[in-house]
Design a protein around this nucleic acid. Structure first.
Length: 734
DNA sequence: CGCACGTGGTTTTTT
DNA sequence: ACCACGTGCG
């Protein structure tokens, strides 16, 4: 290892990198060189301490982080480290389970269910069990199952205080049996099954404990209970757990992450000194000062203050817009200015709390002709046509996979209707077999389907992976289906074809890059690394994303929009103080993405769920020191606690709302824009609050007039949505 | 079997 | 406002 690698580290970084063989917690602030410390530590262990690479295990959350770590590491070491394990929690568990499938009681070719596969498996099961899906929404059941698995609990250990939970636990138990029958595991199961394997099988546990002297974990604040238990199990009593994390950037509590693991770790592993990386190499002083001031409002921090050698830099710009459209207009104007001054679009990010906010921004960007890309959204392997193709491949690999069979038995349509499928399911239940076995004994068109899959399996034996995929596309009729599409759906079908083409490319690439180029391996890759797979990385385009998606990234200029109470911090978080704390950490993450320039903006009114909402500035704005801010619009001293359209004190000087019509008006919209004047002289409009003698309070959500009989659709607070004839209904405007 | 329409929901999301 | 999903008709 090059000695300058160590020379370039600051003192705490150096201390972390050169720690003796002991467990450690590294509190690494935003932009403090966290990945650098992790990778240099590994390089140091290998080349200085002479630790064989195969005695090291490095764990991340995302494939991107794992890849990044490996790339950086290989550039530091003279030779490629042999036997080093770097991967995501799930990827590593998969690896262990594939190796020890027998001991884990799994079929060799077990398949992985992603979230949507899991949901359909649950829906199917619930239908079978005759459970009311109104009373027990499958999504809730899925959450129940995953939450428990992530706590390390099986159905038998689930809390069943309420009848509701009892039922969910019963579904949970059946679901696990179904998965076992079908040879599939969901994401949480990968972790839990692996944990159980290691905790029950002393021989295996001791083998891996003896192997991995050093375990390094990235983003430790995001670990859930089960992941921490898994790490503890592997660490045993002798190995060193080197955990890097930042409690101030813990923003995934909602999906089970437990910051408490950081304190637990210091206790469980007797960590005496927590090393803090507080020097920030990313942002100018004002930005850091703002972030520090904000986060100080949180309780229960481990405590850390970022500082920088850079100067204060520019003040933080704050803008108050009359509405969301004008907020977007301001942002676009500033971006154009920055662009003119020479900043690349790709160095600018536009952040928001929730995805719905991107619409208005996108509209403004399109109008201005600015290139942008939205991060997040549908990923490559999640596309319908890809999932269908993969389902053929999965069924070929593992005919017990009922999920896969159901997805494709009639897609493309081959005359096997709902009735036939029901019959198959009945037979399967009666005889205690999988659908495939039932199908094999059925007749008619089902027989042809079984023969089709069998012939594909045979063909695959002598074909390479890309050839197999081509074969499936051809003989399943998927390609023809999209090729023959005409009319309105033509364009969409062409895109789907292009994606199928891309799947072929992905397979070619996969074969090149992986020693194990089996179908199972490729399918695992598809489930576990459904990755962004988005082209256009090189393009000079703005980045639009949620604050969550921005974690770990940095930009020259950052715009944080929609800083309003109820939006950011989000409404649903405001019930508990801990919720607002997490929102504050989110804001902290958002602020610390910026290198040079930071814009904060909010709007007095905003279109939300089809209604105009009036908001007040986010409390986070008031938590930032005034001297760091430059108000583009004048700062008002106080904000009213709540605004309604009626009492909005600013309504008087809100400039006329110029809301461009975003898309060609549809008939709905044409109606919506009209108002209805009736005999009584009252003017009815959408959004009008009304009261009805029988139904109570409500709001008009739609208007319709055909000749004399005008009707309004009213959403009542308690009575639901109703159409009422204005001539007869006793409706009063509020 | 496939499309049209109606209904409910709407924070954040990786694996 | 918009999207995803489920039901009912041609």
């Amino acid at each position: 290892m090059n000695s300058t690698l160590l020379a370039n580290l600051n003192p705490p970084q150096l201390q972390a990198v050169t720690l003796p063989h002991q467990s450690a917690l590294i509190l690494a602030g935003a932009g403090s060189g966290k990945t650098r410390v992790l990778t240099t530590r590994i390089a140091y262990l290998v080349s200085h301490d002479g630790v064989p690479a195969n005695r090291i295990l490095a764990v991340t959350f995302t494939n991107k982080a794992a890849k990044e770590m490996l790339t950086r590491l290989t550039s530091m070491l003279p030779i490629h480290p042999q036997g080093l394990w770097i991967g995501t929690f799930h990827g590593l568990c998969n690896r262990l389970l594939r190796t020890h499938y027998y001991e884990a009681n799994l079929p060799k070719t077990f398949q992985i269910l992603d979230s949507s596969d899991q949901l359909s498996a649950i829906k199917r099961l619930m239908k079978l069990m005759n459970v009311d899906d109104e009373k027990y929404p499958p999504r809730d059941v899925a959450n129940f199952i995953n939450r428990h698995k992530e706590q390390g609990q099986r159905a038998a250990e689930a809390d069943t205080f309420s009848v509701h939970d009892k039922q969910k636990a019963a579904i949970f138990a059946e679901y696990d049996l179904q998965c076992q029958r079908e040879g599939v595991v969901d994401f949480a199961e990968l972790m839990l099954r692996c944990y159980e394997l290691l905790s029950r099988n002393a021989e295996l546990r001791e083998h891996y404990q003896a192997r991995f002297q050093h375990i390094l974990v990235d983003e430790f604040q995001d670990t859930n209970k089960l992941q921490y238990q898994w790490l503890k199990l592997l660490a045993g009593t002798k190995n060193a757990l080197f955990a890097v994390g930042d409690d101030d950037q813990s923003i995934y509590a909602f999906r089970g992450a437990d910051v408490g693991n950081m304190r637990e770790l210091t206790r469980d592993f007797h960590v005496e000194t927590v090393i803090k990386l507080e020097q920030n190499y990313r942002s100018h002083g004002n930005i850091l000062d703002a972030a520090n001031a904000l986060i100080q409002n949180n309780r229960n921090r481990m405590g850390k203050n970022l500082w920088t050698a850079a100067d204060g830099g520019e003040p933080i710009r704050v803008y108050e817009a009359p509405n969301d459209v004008e907020e977007a207009g301001y942002i676009v104007g500033e971006i154009q200015q920055l662009h003119r001054e020479g900043m690349d679009l790709k160095d600018i990010a536009l952040l928001y709390r929730s995805n719905a906010q991107s619409r208005v921004l996108e509209h403004a960007l399109v109008s201005a002709g600015l290139a942008y890309r939205v991060h997040g959204g549908l990923r490559f392997f999640d596309r319908l046509e890809i999932k269908h193709t993969l389902a053929y491949l999965r069924l070929m690999e593992n005919t017990d996979d009922d999920n896969a069979l159901l997805r494709i038995i009639n897609f493309p349509t081959r005359g096997i209707g709902a009735r036939s499928i029901e019959q198959l399911q009945e037979v399967a239940i009666q005889q205690g077999t999988t659908l495939w076995d039932a199908a094999a004994r059925a007749g008619g068109k089902v027989t042809a389907f079984v023969a089709l899959i069998e012939s594909m399996r045979n063909a695959a034996r002598s074909l390479s992976l890309p050839e197999t995929i081509a074969h499936v596309l051809q003989h399943s009729g998927l390609r023809a289906l999209y090729e023959n599409e005409t009319g309105a759906k033509r364009a969409e079908a062409q895109e789907r074809l292009a994606n199928l083409e891309e799947l072929g490319n992905a397979a070619v690439l996969f074969v090149h890059e992986n020693e194990d180029d089996s179908l199972t391996s490729f399918l695992t890759h598809a489930s576990l690394e459904s990755g962004e797979h988005q082209a256009g990385d090189q393009d000079d385009a703005l980045h639009l994303m949620t604050v969550h998606a921005a974690k770990g990234l940095e930009f020259h200029a950052v715009f944080i929009s929609g800083l309003e109470e109820g939006l950011f911090p989000h409404q649903n978080s405001q019930r508990e103080a801990s919720g607002v704390d997490e929102e504050r950490r989110l804001m902290y993450v958002a602020i610390t993405r910026a290198r040079q320039r930071l814009y904060l903006s909010f709007a007095q009114s905003r279109m939300l769920h089809g209604k105009v909402n009036y908001g007040v500035a986010s409390c986070f704005l008031e938590e930032l020191p005034e001297e760091l801010l430059h108000w583009i619009t004048p700062k008002r001293t106080a904000f009213a606690p709540t605004f309604t359209p009626q009492n909005n004190p600013f309504a008087a000087y809100v400039s006329p709302v110029s809301r461009p019509v975003p898309t060609p008006p549809r008939n709905q919209r044409a109606m919506a824009s009209s108002t209805q004047r009736t005999v009584s002289g009252t003017e009815w409009r959408i959004g009008q609050s009304v009261t009805h003698a029988k139904f109570g309070d409500g709001v008009i959500v739609n208007l319709e007039s055909s000749g004399a009989d005008a009707r309004v659709q009213v959403k009542f607070r308690t009575a639901g949505v109703k159409w009422l004839a204005l001539e007869y209904a006793k409706l009063t405007a509020v």
